[in-house]
Amino acid sequence: MSVWKYANPAKFMSLSGRVLPVLTVLSGAFLLVGLVWGFFFTPDDYKQGSTVKIIFLHVPSAFLAINIWIMMLVTSLIWFIRRHHVSALAAKAAAPIGITMTLIALFTGAIWGKPMWGTYWAWDPRLTSFMILFVFYLGYMALWTAIEDRDTAADLTSILCMVGSVFALLSRYAVNFWNQGLHQGASLSVDAETHVDNAFYLPLLVCIAGFVLLFVSLVLLRTRTEIRLRRLSALQVRGSAT
């Protein structure tokens, strides 16, 4: 028994087919509870007023935007080292979700920034880092669509993801050097002294769980699509050969 047996596309399809409905229901439930709790049943912040409710979208999407890239890096490495197709396709499937999360984080942040900082956009290091992350996602997705041969595309995108990760990290620190920030510190720290107030912390955790579950469901769904498309093109090649 090892996790690698699910790298077999057929095994992956049967397992993900069984898990997907459960995950979908769970993510829907968590999102519903978390967002309803956050939107209707949290108090206003004494300083930020009702805008604090944006946190339930902003923090989970930002959290995922970064972690989806890391997940893509890990799956790219697995593809590169162990040549499991499911892994490469999962990285491909995750990118559009990651870019959507980046967009949500940027938009909600801009809307939140207007009443709090007096501007939609400032060249704050964290905002800038997300803009950079957005461009990295764009390049990654563009490379997938530009190359016809599937294995070549998987190889080249995974190389790009690895090199890109190094430079994304470097950019993150370079950006810190270049401008002072407006952002508050860690909202999510486990240390109760520094994280946000408990009235917001609990629904926030529920929302994050909901976003993560939504991501897992979507990535499974999209990977299944990619596997089907791959099988389709394999069949077409065989069909045209005979």
């Binding site: 209707f40 805008t51 944006i54």
Partner: peptide, 17 residues
């Protein structure tokens, strides 16, 4: 809930997301 003067901001953030 009463969103006060920031109703536009909160609602548009939720709407866009």
């Amino acid at each position: 809930p009463d969103l006060g003067k920031y109703a536009d901001a909160v609602l548009s953030a939720y709407g866009i997301s």
